[in-house]
Write a protein that binds this DNA or RNA. Structure first.
Length: 355
DNA sequence: CGACGTGTAAC
DNA sequence: CCTTTTACACGTCG
């Protein structure tokens, strides 16, 4: 089963403030560069009808919103996480296994609990939907199928507040007419390449000779694409450990001034350190993410001995920045980020100052 | 085989 | 006009 909280951030804000309920709501990530620089994180369905969508520049959204009553709010991720945690706990209680994939999405396995009975699965889904509604005032869209991939697409089929069951014999007819870009894992690039060779729908893809796909995408990806077209997915529902933590930010203005950039690195490092402490992890690999004025991203990394505090990473960031500036003396930077990976989790038991 | 950089994808 | 965070595959190098 795949459970997707409907326009999560925007819906939470509606619950928080009854006076904006039903109005178009746009949740924004302000970059702090100018008054309205930044992007739209989430909009509710009322705002989507106007054409305000995720990822859109805020300035553009405001232009569309001109002369209309549209509510713009900044993201309050801390609060959304609290709500999310409560909901995930509630979902977990109704599941054999929970796999949370993001703040507003989860897969659950209910094979045991339902004895592989579709009707029982629908009951479980409705119980979960009802609890989320009564306890948090939010709606969710649910997809039920015999694998994660089909469940994911099913949850997207009727939104918001949907419930879609796809039984095994319904998988092919269900997928058949979908555009390839609707298949989870096929993004913009892959869809474009497929379109170029005349493949528009899932059906087209399933009929395409695997050899042809191998020519273009290589053996592994070809198999993956072919499986997707037939709704085949053997991956299991399992909770996964985080593999990296990062924090990225936008510079006040494009610059190549080492001092200015490093100040931002320090600021981001402190924020990243909070995450490191919160998750109680140590790290071995340290990366500096640079995004230049053309929005091209570069990542430079270095692996060090195990550390549990960002203090150990800061000199590495400095070094990586020096290297970058040396090699790209002409290029100004727009954004900068810090990342740690090669993580190891600790029991709260273990004392940390042994490093 | 581990480390690293890049591309793709999703949220 | 252009945010943030994470994952994973693949090629390459030593």
């Amino acid at each position: 089963m795949h459970i997707d909280l409907d326009s999560f951030y925007a819906s939470i804000e509606e619950v928080r403030n009854n006076s904006i309920k039903g109005k178009p709501i746009v949740i924004c990530v302000y970059s702090g560069r100018t008054q309205n620089s930044g992007a739209v994180s989430t909009s509710n369905y009322s705002a989507r009808k106007l054409g305000i969508k995720s990822g859109m520049p805020i300035v553009l959204a405001k232009r569309i919103a001109m002369n209309k009553e549209v509510v713009f709010l900044p993201v309050d991720i801390e609060y959304y996480r609290e709500v999310s945690d409560r909901i995930m706990n509630l979902i977990e209680e109704e599941s054999d296994t929970l796999e949370q994939v993001s703040i507003d999405e989860a897969y659950i396995d209910v094979t045991e609990k339902t004895n592989s009975n579709w009707n029982k699965a629908i009951q479980v889904a409705n119980t979960i939907k009802q609890k989320i509604l009564s306890q948090e005032g939010l709606t969710a869209s649910v997809g039920i199928a015999s694998n994660k991939f089909v469940a994911k697409i099913a949850s997207d089929f009727q939104k918001p507040n949907g419930l879609t069951l796809v039984k095994n014999e319904e998988i092919i007819p269900f997928l058949e007419n979908l555009k390839v870009s609707k298949l989870h894992g096929i993004g913009e690039k892959t869809a474009r390449v497929l379109n170029e060779i005349g493949i528009e729908t899932s059906k087209d893809l399933s009929k395409c000779d695997i050899k042809v796909l191998e020519e273009i995408f290589g053996k592994n990806k070809a198999k993956l694409l072919h499986d997707k077209s037939l709704g085949i997915d053997n991956s299991i529902v399992e909770s996964k450990k985080k593999k990296q933590l990062s924090k990225i930010g936008t510079l006040k203005e494009d610059t190549k001034d080492k001092k200015v950039i490093f100040e931002k690195i320090i600021e981001l490092s402190n924020e990243l350190n909070q995450k490191i402490k919160r998750d109680n992890v140590s790290f071995r690999t340290v990366s500096l993410i640079t995004i230049d004025i053309e929005l091209k991203t570069h990542i430079k990394s270095e692996t060090i001995s195990q550390a549990n505090d960002i203090q150990r990473a800061v000199p590495v960031f400095k070094q990586l920045l020096n290297n970058y500036i040396e090699k790209n003396s002409e290029k100004k930077l727009r954004r900068i980020g810090v990342r740690v990976s090669n993580l190891e989790f600790f029991n709260s038991q273990r004392t940390l100052d042994e490093f």
